[in-house]
Every structure is written in C-alpha cells, then in structure tokens.
C-alpha cells in the first residue's frame, strides 16, 4: 500500500507542487520561445517528455557503471542522442511542426529540466521510479506549455489550436502577445497569480485550527 501511494506522489509532484516551470523555473528557454500557440506548446511538451523519459530510464539503468566525475558529460551525451531521435522523427512525420519549432528542438539538449532530473532523481532511484518521476515532470511541463500557449494564442490571434473563434470585428488581437515580450509578461503574471492563489490558500489553512 505504501509503495503505490509513493508512486502516485512521485507522479503528481511534477504536476503541481514541484511543477518544473512554475515552481522551479527550469526549462524556461523553450517555455518562452515556442508558446506563441497552443499547438506549438503541446508538441514541444511532448518532445521534451519523450526525451525526459528515455534519458531518465537510461541514466537510471547505468547509474552504477558511470564514475561520478564524468557523470554530467555522460548524461548530456545520452540526452543529445535522444534529442537527435526526436528531431529526426519530427522532421520525417510532422514537417510543419518541426519547421515552426525550428532550432528549439535541438535546444532540448540544454534544457536544464532534463539534466536536472537525471542528476537529482534518475541517478539515485530505481528504473521504475525514474520513469514515473519523468512522466510526471513531463506532463507538468507539457501542461504548463499548453496553458501558456493557449493564453497567448487566444489574446494574440483570437484562436485556439488554430481554430479561430473570435471574429476580427469583435476582437482586435493583441499582437504583442505572440511576440517575445508577450511571453515574458504572460509567464510573469501567471506565476504571480499562482503565488497569490496559493498564499490565499495558505493563510486560510493557517486560520483554521
């Protein structure tokens, strides 16, 4: 019973309490760069999740073989290998998505989230746990990217997943939201709002005996 509970905990911590983007500010480069539409955010999230799960698995398997001094370069090479796989797959199967993500797919290599999870979690835990942890983190990361992408797409072009539901005559798109500046502002306000909500919750919780 205790085992199944901790499995669930390892999974859900990535979704909210240790969400990589909102709480830990990891992997901000892709978060900000590709979230100009919900679809881009989702594809980036899925690609990152794939790399995260695969590299966490491998790192966890070889954790006893790799000497501590060369572990970081080893992890990076493993990650780079899987990023190459993801990149070639996207180019072959989804050329338009690969084109719109551009050089940000290879840049998953230096996404601190993946290296961070390898170093902090996968190199110290069993294979099964590492996969669960990576899955939770990946889902949390993807979810945040989709939320950010949706907000920016709705405000910036009046559509969601390329489906236009706000007519130009009713709503003038805020072009700035799909430009770089909009990314910083949206994420800033989003984190601020989440801090505000959780501080309200926290003070309420303290007030009750």
């Amino acid at each position: 019973m205790a085992v199944s509970k901790s499995v669930l905990e390892e999974f859900t911590k990535g979704l909210w309490s240790e969400n990589p983007v909102i709480k830990a500010l990891l992997g901000l480069c892709p978060t900000l760069a590709v979230t100009n539409s919900a679809l881009n955010g989702l594809s980036m999230g899925l690609a990152t999740t794939f790399v995260l799960i695969s590299s966490s698995t491998i790192v966890s398997i070889i954790k006893r073989v790799v000497p501590a001094q060369v572990r970081i370069p080893t992890f990076i090479v493993i990650i780079a290998g899987f990023v190459t796989v993801a990149d070639i797959f996207l180019k072959a199967q989804f050329p338009p998505i690969s084109k719109s993500l551009g050089p940000y797919v290879p840049l998953i290599v230096v996404n601190c989230l993946i290296l961070g999870r390898s170093e902090i979690f996968a190199s110290k835990h069993s294979v099964g746990m590492s996969i669960i942890d990576a899955l939770g983190m990946g889902v949390g990361f993807s979810g945040t990217l989709v939320v950010l992408g949706s907000i920016r797409e709705i405000l910036g072009s009046g559509s969601l997943f390329n489906f236009k539901f706000l007519a130009e005559s009713l709503f003038t798109p805020w072009v700035v939201m799909v430009l770089p500046a909009g990314a910083f502002l949206t994420l800033g306000f989003l984190i601020g709002m989440i801090n505000f909500i959780s501080s309200r919750k926290g003070s309420k919780g303290r007030a009750q005996p």
């Binding site: 430009l179 990314a183 502002l185």
Partner: peptide, 23 residues
C-alpha cells in the same frame, strides 16, 4: 512590489518590458 509578484514574476515582467523596448 506586491507580495505575490516578488522574485521571479517581477523579474519576468521587467524582462517583458525590456523586450518591448528592444522591439
């Protein structure tokens, strides 16, 4: 700075304004 915006959120907002300026 309002309490919920202290730290990272405020930095991101400032960066957003800088990005606007660089546009």
């Amino acid at each position: 700075v309002p309490q919920s915006l202290q730290g990272a959120p405020m930095t991101l907002l400032v960066a957003g304004m800088l990005a606007l300026a660089f546009m």
